[in-house]
Structure formats: C-alpha cells, structure tokens
C-alpha cells in the first residue's frame, strides 16, 4: 500500500514562495495566474492491506510530525 500526503499552508497564512512563483509566472507572460500556493507531497510506502486503518495511522502521523497544524493543513490518499 501507498499513502500520498499533501501538506499545504492553511488559507490566510502568508506563502512567500507561492507569491514568488505567481510573480515569476506572470513575468513569463502567463497573465491568467492570479495566485499560487506551494505545498509538499510525501509518499509513504506502507505494509498491510487495511485501507481504513492505514488512513487512521497516516492521519495520526500528520498530526504528530508531517504537518504543523498551527500553519498547515493536510489531505491523505491511500492507494494499493
């Protein structure tokens, strides 16, 4: 099994990297870009076959280490 964890700054938290990306895209002529938010993707290789249990465990990992809940939010995908 595999878990894909997306971690991103919460809405309203300043994201200077996202702003820099949006600025760079605008300077390349992509005028339609009105904003960018940067996050990270963490892929976890998991043993076991129980998706529900895996989700529960990965969400605990997010709360304990992978995301800082003061500034970040996360989402979890479990794949075979």
């Amino acid at each position: 099994m595999k878990a894909i964890v997306h971690v991103q700054l919460k809405p309203g938290v300043l994201d200077p990297q996202g702003q820099a990306i949006a600025g760079a895209l605008a300077s390349l002529g992509y005028d339609e870009v009105t904003g960018a938010r940067q996050g990270k993707v963490i892929e976890l290789e998991l043993s076991g076959t129980d998706h529900a249990l895996a989700r529960e465990r990965v969400e605990a990992m997010c709360g304990q280490l992978l995301a800082n809940m003061v500034i970040e939010q996360f989402s979890v995908e479990i794949l075979d």
Binding site: V13, L14, P16, Q17, A20, N68, V70, I71
Partner: peptide
Amino acid sequence: LTEIGLLPGALLPNAGM
C-alpha cells in the same frame, strides 16, 4: 520550541524570501 509546543505559533519563511 514552537514545534514542540512549549511556545505557541510557528516561524514561517521571511516575507522577502
């Protein structure tokens, strides 16, 4: 100290990057 929760809040990248 913020990561371990002894102090509240968090430290983000500088606004000017």
